[in-house]
Design a protein around this nucleic acid. Sequence first.
DNA 1: TCATCAAGTATGGTCAGACCAAATATGTTT
DNA 2: AAACATATTTGGTCTGACCATACTTGATGA
Lengths: 244, 244
Amino acid sequence: MLDAVDDLTPEKPADARRAADLIVAELAAMIGSGALADGSYLPAERELMAQFGISRTVAREAVAQLAGRGLVEARPRFRPVVRRPGYDTALSALGGVVTHLMRESGSVKHLYDIRVFLEAALVRHAALHARKDDIAALRRALEANEVAIGDSTQFYLTDMAFHAVLYDLPRNPVMPAIHRAFTSWLSPHWQRMPRAPERNRINFLSHREIYTAIVERDPDMAERALNGHLAAAWEYVRGTFEAD
Amino acid sequence: MLDAVDDLTPEKPADARRAADLIVAELAAMIGSGALADGSYLPAERELMAQFGISRTVAREAVAQLAGRGLVEARPRFRPVVRRPGYDTALSALGGVVTHLMRESGSVKHLYDIRVFLEAALVRHAALHARKDDIAALRRALEANEVAIGDSTQFYLTDMAFHAVLYDLPRNPVMPAIHRAFTSWLSPHWQRMPRAPERNRINFLSHREIYTAIVERDPDMAERALNGHLAAAWEYVRGTFEAD
DNA sequence: TCATCAAGTATGGTCAGACCAAATATGTTT
DNA sequence: AAACATATTTGGTCTGACCATACTTGATGA
């Protein structure tokens, strides 16, 4: 991290030409313009060879790059399928790196804190701007959460669903994608957390507290409830990876 | 976007074996454990061949994958260099996809709204938790911003720097990375925005307003000021890409 | 008629060996 | 000791081949 420049748009060496890059650009443009429709097959490698006058090597590398960018879904022995990227596929690009990042001591906490920070803002936003149907959705999620107290697996799902409603509230499609990314990154750690109905009950009560604060249009109380909720959850799971 | 499941941990087909994947996992582990030190050269392709008993093809694909994940920096004709990933390299993985995403109408706005949402929470946090040295840093950034009003290029930089301080405040290394990611994604649009000293002055005043609110420990006012600031900025640049 | 199953083909995955151009190392000359 | 010429290393690309599996086609049989 000494001189980690890492400009986020890797276009520094003005030339940096590699045969595959041109093909990638071309195909990417086709995907963007719809010339290659979402869900359709990418031309076979041997077709690309003929079509662009390149070798198989280059064709393969181009496909691999597109797959890396999420513009194409290339399962091992199947024909690559064109995938117009959504916010989820974008976040999923992080997956690999994040997994490695989280080996680093403290990084899980950093990520978790970001989540708390975001969600605090979300409950605040909810308390101020939630509409009737939003609150209804929240209430439904809360009720589902309550009946699942006895079943820890089910409780985990309804727990996530409750929080998901908060991410849906701003009606910005990026938010739910962020939520899915967070949960998929952090869930491995959560899985290891011992579960018990009494613990579930505590969490449910926290959820209800948050819900109440939102209904009463009290952002400060909502934020406080959420912070307490997530701080407690953290204390409960920190042990599972602090031994690392 | 119809059935974009896209689970964020691409490990669904229990088999999905590809020779390169094993090598990638192996090398990734070595990088994680420090066996391959940050900044050192990755073994040459021909060495990997011998070391793992694989063909050049597989060796190359493995390196390409590592490069895609940001664990290795592979400039065109140079030896790949090991890069222990930081939060920046993680976010940079998004770069390619986000670029494509932003062709989609409305996605720039969505991304911008996320930024506004986050920054609103940040100024709020600043107003509540900023320490003396934080405020000093903020003041320095503000002053630098003021003297740059006449120079639009310089103003742009000091503008970013001012906002950057807000991201530094929570002392969570993920925050600055997010800021850099945002600016690198949105800057292409901002570059097209016409600049003028009078406009700079308005923005500076907004910054001062935010600063004042933080100094006075008034989160609501800080949030309001920031929302106004960024909303105005949006109105000013929306024209540059709404024609698309 | 239509479902089933067996070739046959298309396609991605891997291998081998070769050549090139650029980057790096080596050694020689000044 | 610095500058230059040469040799070696190394990544980029090409060719051509073989395999295993996904897909297609068509024959078979209920």
